[in-house]
Every structure is written in C-alpha cells, then in structure tokens.
Amino acid sequence: SHLLVAEPEKIYAMPDPTMPESDIKALTTLCDLADRELVVIIGWAKHIPGFSALSLGDQMSLLQSAWMEILILSIVFRSLPYEDELVYAEDYIMDEEHSRLTGLLDLYVSILQLVRKYKKLKVEKEEFVTLKAIALANSDSMHIEDMEAVQKLQDALHEALQDYESSQHQEDPRRAGKLLMTLPLLRQTATKAVQHFYSIKVQGKVPMHKLFLEMLEAKV
C-alpha cells in the first residue's frame, strides 16, 4: 500500500511544436522526458519504505544502477493496454515504424518482449509497483557500502511480493517466481538502452539535460 501511494502522477512528453518532425526531434523529446522522469524517480525512491534509511552513497549507487530499468518498467506497464505500441508518455506513443525511423527499433522489440510477458501474466498494479522497487533494491551495484542494509531492503520487498501473491493468487503458488523471472530481460533491455543513448550522447546531435547525462555517465 505504501508503494501504491508513492506511485508518481502521469507524465507528458510535450514535444516542441516549433521543431520540425525528425529523428533528432523524437530523440530530443525522449531525452527531455527521461530527464524529467529521473527527477520523479528520485523522489519516488525516497518513499520506498527503508530506502531513505540507507546511506546517501548507497541510495546513489542503487539509483545509478537501476534508473533505466525503472524507466523501462514504467513504459512497459503503461503499454499493457496497447497492441504493439510503446507508451513513452501519455501523449507520446510509438509504433514500430516510428521506432524504426528514430533508430529505436531494437529497443522497441526488446521492450515489447517484456510487454508480452507481463500481458501473459496479467500483471497487476500492486505487482508492478513492487517489481519496480525490487529492481531498484536488486540493482547489483558494485559500489554498495552496507550490503547488509541493502539485503534487508531486498528481503522486505520480496516479502511484500510474496505476501501479496499468497493472499491474492493462491491459485498459482509460483506467481512471485514468474514475476521475478522477468527481471533478467529487464536488465538486458536496460543495458542495451543505456548503451544506445550513450552512443547518441557521444555523437552529440541530440541535446541532453544535465541529470540525464549524469546518470548515463554513471552507468558506462
């Protein structure tokens, strides 16, 4: 219930109406969106019970490792009601063709694979918010100072997921495991996404805000 309350408001991409349509415009819109979402994610993380009790250094390390997984999981959940489209924001929905034109076809294919998995599982909002928090706590940062404290956070979130499943999904005793088994594909997709946006940064054609740059650099 804490995680449901902590869930951020809807976000809008608001593409610049004065800019002519192009791949650069689409990527600029997405990078701006990601920068604003990062601010929201940092605020959200503070509402995860136990997160703020970690050292500031460990809070930073978890977010630096997991931010793209959290961004992608949010896109995946928003896209569940759609067919073969990715809801980057309420006003920014991309289909296969648009993704191809923007150079994001690989990412589109990977994220859709995740969407299909969660559709098949009929994932619920309670499960989605818990998985997002688990992705953060389980981000495998190599720079954790107090692993015991991070393990405690992982255990608490894992327990929340198990409690939810044992009360709401008694018909499938393996449901929690099935949900956790989606996380490797999420990690793989996020790694690809970070590499892709890092190479866009290196090419220097797309303007990027400071927080997005800072987080991209922390991952590479």
Partner: peptide, 15 residues
C-alpha cells in the same frame, strides 16, 4: 561524488 552532484542534491532535498 562530485561528478554526480544533481543526484546527490535531489536525494538530500527533503521533498
């Protein structure tokens, strides 16, 4: 940590 100053600042903000 100096390199990650925005993240650091946002985490320290109370809101």
């Amino acid at each position: 940590k100096e390199k990650h100053k925005i993240l650091h600042r946002l985490l320290q903000n109370s809101t």
